[in-house]
Design a protein around this nucleic acid. Structure first.
Lengths: 145, 145
DNA sequence: CTTGATAGTTAAGCGGGCTGAAATATAAAG
DNA sequence: CTTTATATTTCAGCCCGCTTAACTATCAAG
């Protein structure tokens, strides 16, 4: 019998946060991006395409801040701003391939330690862990839609 | 048969990062702490007690930066600096109860969505997930020591 | 006691992100 | 056409964190 899931989750997240936050900040510094920029890339990646105000709300900042942040991303060739033809007040924001690349790298930087860990598990346990995570993933997707 | 663990981990981390990063940044803003400060608290919490230079190395910044950052934490009553009696050049950094509290709150903010998700799983799946995460936790602790 | 190494602090300067307010452009309503 | 609302941008001013470089304090070796 395993400990209650709540307690296990708490402990697990402690481990995850310690590693992934550290790795992510080091990656940001190495690549000369700010955390705010990386977070914005992650948001845009997730939403697919969205307006500037949406983006700001999502990140908890004013639309002015979002606009300025986006400008930096555009200058770096990581994102694109295009007008919405149906209402030219709105802009549509999307990531460039370079922007998508940064998102992928950032993920990899954050989860490298986990993959290393996973490799050292015997196949049976790998199977067990994979099955359990699939449950969580599925439930998360379900709650989001 | 579940998908390969590597692929599952990748997908899982995408979900975790999206939620936990967002929640963490919103928490930081709400409480008027910077991410750098929260990260420092997390580091000190984990190392238990350490010198200023150590802390800087851990975070990937110079010792000057670490010293300044720490000063802010001390002013806010979140950390304490004491001299090492055996070598008074060294300082020992520890968290105050208020500092520990912030760490706990930050974790809670990051994992709230996960707990909500876990509650909606049937008991059998909760058990299955908990068992699998225990495997990962154990392996992580083992790799760290 | 002097020399040199080590740990930490302080100060100046730089760039980044945020806000509030003003400005611009577009759309919708009367 | 005028008015009002919406989406975004620009600007000034602020705070923050980082770095380099200079400085202080302490220790250890000769």
């Amino acid at each position: 019998m395993s400990p209650p899931l709540n307690q296990t989750l708490h402990e697990w997240m402690r481990v995850v946060m310690r590693h992934s936050m550290r790795n992510f900040m080091l990656y940001a510094k190495e690549k000369n991006h700010s955390l705010a920029q990386l977070n914005a890339l992650l948001r845009i990646h997730h939403k697919g395409t969205c307006g500037i105000t949406d983006l700001g709300e999502e990140m908890g900042v004013t639309s002015a801040a979002a606009s300025q942040l986006l400008e930096k991303l555009v200058q770096q060739g990581l994102a694109l701003r295009t007008e919405d033809p149906s209402d030219r007040r709105n802009k549509r924001v999307v990531l460039t391939p370079a922007g998508e690349q940064i998102v992928r790298e950032g993920m990899a930087a954050r989860q490298g330690w986990l993959e290393e860990l996973a490799e050292r598990l015997p196949p049976a346990e790998q199977e067990q862990v994979s099955a359990a995570l699939q449950i969580l993933i599925q439930k998360a997707n379900q709650l989001e839609s």
